[in-house]
Design a protein around this nucleic acid. Sequence first.
DNA 1: TGAAGGATGACAACTGAGTTGTCATCTTCT
DNA 2: AGAAGATGACAACTCAGTTGTCATCCTTCA
Lengths: 164, 164
Amino acid sequence: MTETEPPQPPPDAPGEPDDIAPHLMEVFALVGPLYRRVQRKIEQDAPQQGLSVGVRAVLDLLREHGPMTVPQMGRAQSLSRQFVQRMVNDAAARNLVATAPNPAHQRSSLIRLTDDGLAAITAVTDREHALLRQAGGDLTEADVATCVRVLARMLALFDDVDVD
Amino acid sequence: MTETEPPQPPPDAPGEPDDIAPHLMEVFALVGPLYRRVQRKIEQDAPQQGLSVGVRAVLDLLREHGPMTVPQMGRAQSLSRQFVQRMVNDAAARNLVATAPNPAHQRSSLIRLTDDGLAAITAVTDREHALLRQAGGDLTEADVATCVRVLARMLALFDDVDVD
DNA sequence: TGAAGGATGACAACTGAGTTGTCATCTTCT
DNA sequence: AGAAGATGACAACTCAGTTGTCATCCTTCA
């Protein structure tokens, strides 16, 4: 980074020992740029597969969770049902996913990964694993676990923001 | 969250004790939804001020860093110069920022917060502080600091992704 | 059993963030 | 002085994601 200063939180009232709100603001400040760069990187990394972040998210979810319906995926990622549907349609057009009959629901079929889809998402995540291994450096698993905990906590805070 | 499962990283080769790459992938998985929800929340929270995330980022930067030029801000946030310029123009049209002559550069003037701008960004961040205080819960400052460290590390990884 | 109300798929229009491209002018470097 | 780079201005564009609407299907309950 060339000119990015570490954020200087405005001076605190020294009377409040663990008001962590300003520190959480730093997290926000980091999440924005990180999200943008990761998005750009994903596009750069997988132009041949033509995996948009949306399609990628769908494949990821299916690999981790097994076959699901479109609305289930939307809820799981707090994305609109319609958007997920569009991503699934995209993926289906490329033979990355296929529909399987849903025993529990006639109208809403299960979406599952095809072999092509599994190969595609595996290739992408393998590449990312390799990249992230470089990032490892001085970070311990505990550090990362803590980070995940903090982010999850913040995410939960915004849970009430609903969709659809 | 209703249906979000904790991500199940695909089984690892057990021979590598601290391959943290899969855990960093969890961070990715969290950053996306968090970014989206925060964005939505910012809009909801400040509709009266009409602060888009872009304008908000500009005001934030100016408050923390003092007057800067547009290209400096772009580099600091890894955003395109042109985009930042548009946000600054927006903000200037609402009298949230003003241009000051730049002693070091005739063409590229310094952008500074106006009183209105300071009031606006202060109001917004105060509201956010209040929100985040709720999130505090069982998180310690050390936790959050660790989180910031991890995110910063990941961000640095993507530093080469350049703009303009 | 038969509505009523909710969930789903399909399609379209829209917003907002952010980029890319281009050109003219201004600065800086040699 | 001249070349190369930085800046402002403006426009076109992409991409993520939402909102709205309608018709069909599923579920529940009186």
